[in-house]
Computed example of a mutant assay.
Amino acid sequence: MRVVIQHPVLRRVLEALGTLLGVAVLVFIMMRALPGDQITASLGTEAAALTPAQREALEAYYGLDQPLVVQFFTWLGNVLTGNLGVSTRTGQSVLEMTAASLPVTIELAVISTILGIAIGVPLAIWSASRPNSVRDASGQLVGLAGLSIPAFLLASVLLATSARFLGYNPNAEQFATLFSDPWLNLQQMLMPALVLGFGLAAPIMRTARSAILEVQTQDFVRTARGKGVKPRVVQFRHVLRNATVPILTMTGIQFGYLLGGAVVVEEVFSVPGIGRQVLTGMHQQEFALVQSTVLVIALSFVLVNLLTDVLYRVVDPRVRQT
């Protein structure tokens, strides 16, 4: 049994299942800790006028007359069969809503990650080329700005500036998907991706800078320089290639975070992503919507981590040998 559990793939799968179960329990308890229930959320102030018989009937309909343990496993069993629930406000299934919003967030996360890497890695190379110099200090200052400036503030300033002084605000139009109108979709994704990419570039830059400085002190780098290899070749073929694993780790973590952590930026720019869907569900106390959507976000994060582990074996032969 111990040998089976020690298998790296099986161990990662078991850890992922444990994480998802923990998330499911946590979000279920948190939603039940909020004031009110599904009856008051759907009826509002009219719930006070219900007779005891009417309330009992509604509790039986929503399953609120069952113990919390039974409610949890009933919901979890429905999720495992593909039934994520129904929105009490719109009457639309949560599965359909998630199928429409999740690709939007994934697209935003991919564009943001590309921009973050395009900003962070070159900045890290530029800073690490001369440690403890003015160049290094300026690079770290940009990274510090990316970590310290709140996303909602940067998003608000960017949106207000472009709309007022440039007369440019594509997010004021109805949202267009990538397949319905690619050009408008790209414009609507550009500003939120810039905001998220700038914040993502900071940890990537700091991680890449530390990794590059560490690799530069290795013997094989000094040997390559002693043999007269061109500095650019040393930097990209030897140093940057061996510093890829920490960069990949940080990128995978940040990408997973964007799948659920872009809710503020999505709200500012009116992007109908999955984070905004959770926020709307919490405001309206949509229990099934919030619980199932958060579980989908957690599943996406786990899959991203598993994909990151696979990429380790692709970029680093030493990982494949273990």
Results as ranks from 00 to 15, higher is better:
Q284V: 00
Y257M: 07
T81C: 02
E107R: 12
P192C: 06
Q291Y: 07
V271E: 03
L154R: 00
A298S: 10
S101L: 09
S42Q: 08
A288N: 13
I149D: 00
I149P: 00
S300K: 15
R11H: 12
Q284C: 00
G22C: 04
G197L: 06
G18F: 05
V86A: 00
D136G: 05
L295V: 14
F198M: 11
R55W: 08
L21G: 09
G22F: 10
S87G: 06
E214T: 12
S270Y: 00
D316L: 05
P122N: 12
V239N: 08
P170G: 11
E56M: 13
A145G: 13
L295R: 03
P52T: 14
A137P: 02
L68V: 10
L10P: 09
T105E: 03
S133N: 12
G22T: 09
G44N: 10
G261E: 11
P272L: 06
L194M: 15
R320N: 07
Q277M: 14
T244R: 12
V263Q: 03
V315Y: 04
P131W: 09
S129K: 15
V27R: 00
L34W: 04
G36K: 03
F220A: 09
R135K: 14
G256N: 03
V215F: 10
T308W: 08
E214F: 02
L20H: 07
P52L: 13
V4L: 15
S300W: 08
L34R: 11
I117E: 07
A163M: 12
L279E: 04
G199D: 01
N242R: 08
L144R: 02
V9P: 01
P272M: 04
V79P: 04
F28I: 06
R206N: 15
T322W: 00
G197E: 02
G22H: 08
E286P: 02
L258H: 03
L200S: 10
F301A: 10
L20Q: 03
P246S: 11
T249L: 11
V245I: 14
P122F: 10
G139N: 05
G82V: 07
G167F: 06
L43G: 01
E96L: 10
I117F: 13
A137F: 11
V110S: 13
Q140W: 05
T293Y: 01
V315C: 13
H238D: 15
V304M: 09
V245K: 02
F152D: 00
S101R: 06
R241I: 11
A109P: 06
R135H: 07
G252I: 10
Q188T: 06
A262Q: 10
L50P: 05
G256D: 05
L200R: 09
N169T: 04
R164S: 15
I297L: 09
W183P: 02
I5S: 13
P272H: 00
